[in-house]
Amino acid sequence: MFRTALLRSARSATSQVVRRTGAIARPVAPSSFVTKSQFAPSAFQAARCYSAASGLQKSEVEGRIVDLLKNFDKVTDPSKLSPTSHFANDLGLDSLDTVEVVMAIEEEFSIEIPDKEADAIHSVDKAVEYILAQPDGELFEMRVGDGGEAWPLNDGPRGVL
């Protein structure tokens, strides 16, 4: 019993920390599909990866995908963007654009979508559904250097964002 209480307090502490940082910091490595000028790279910047202890909320996933599409230069009419938009029917993207969008989503959420699943993603809600179905990654904090290289503060994996 004592252990569950301890765990619970630890968990709530973590989620508070997560909440206090506000919007989740994204990797500074630029995607070639979208321009993220709002994330000016600084020499050192702490990045929290997409995996938070509480998991991803549906609204957050939707927001991030819609934001990503907003920055995609082929989307000419941002007013048609909604959590249910179809890439081809609503946004006027062709099949190559769709591949690029799915690739940008992969980079946004640091996952790799297998070909078969990737071919089936044709709309924002399908993408959201797929992301939410993925198991959570581990929570770790990293520091990101200006060359894009990242190293963990604890003993998480070392890598390049």
Partner: peptide, 28 residues
Amino acid sequence: ALQAYRHLLRSTRIAFAGDAPVLHAARA
């Protein structure tokens, strides 16, 4: 063709990770 395109984009990410100008050029 779409799968080939996806593989190609993935390969550019592997080959040119951390080198934005070349990555952009390769994808263009």
